Computed example of a mutant assay.
Amino acid sequence: MGIYDFVVKTNKGVEKSLADYKGKVLVIVNTASKCGFTPQFKELQDLYMKYKGQGLEILGFPCNQFAEQEPGSNSEVQEFCRLNYGVTFQIFEKGDVRGETAQPLFKYLIEQQGFKGFDASHPIAAKLTEALQQNFPEYLEGDSIKWNFTKFLVDRDGKVVARFEPTFAPAEMAAEIEKLL
Results as ranks from 00 to 15, higher is better:
residue 60 G to L: 08
residue 81 C to D: 10
residue 11 N to F: 15
residue 61 F to L: 02
residue 145 I to F: 05
residue 126 A to M: 14
residue 3 I to K: 02
residue 129 T to Y: 10
residue 70 E to H: 00
residue 104 P to E: 07
residue 27 V to Y: 00
residue 157 D to K: 11
residue 86 G to L: 11
residue 165 E to Q: 08
residue 143 D to H: 07
residue 124 I to N: 09
residue 27 V to N: 10
residue 93 E to S: 07
residue 35 C to E: 01
residue 174 A to W: 01
residue 177 I to S: 10
residue 11 N to R: 15
residue 20 D to N: 15
residue 46 D to T: 14
residue 122 H to M: 07
residue 33 S to Y: 07
residue 38 T to N: 03
residue 28 I to K: 00
residue 171 A to S: 15
residue 148 N to W: 09
residue 84 N to R: 12
residue 65 Q to N: 06
residue 23 G to P: 01
residue 160 V to C: 00
residue 130 E to N: 15
residue 77 V to Y: 10
residue 58 I to Q: 05
residue 42 K to S: 14
residue 22 K to A: 08
residue 146 K to P: 04
residue 121 S to H: 04
residue 41 F to L: 09
residue 58 I to M: 13
residue 120 A to I: 15
residue 48 Y to D: 03
residue 73 S to C: 04
residue 138 E to W: 04
residue 110 I to T: 15
residue 22 K to Y: 03
residue 52 K to G: 06
residue 71 P to H: 07
residue 64 N to C: 11
residue 19 A to K: 02
residue 151 K to P: 01
residue 111 E to D: 13
residue 34 K to E: 12
residue 114 G to K: 03
residue 99 G to C: 02
residue 152 F to H: 05
residue 122 H to N: 11
residue 51 Y to P: 01
residue 161 V to E: 08
residue 167 T to F: 02
residue 170 P to M: 12
residue 58 I to H: 09
residue 138 E to R: 09
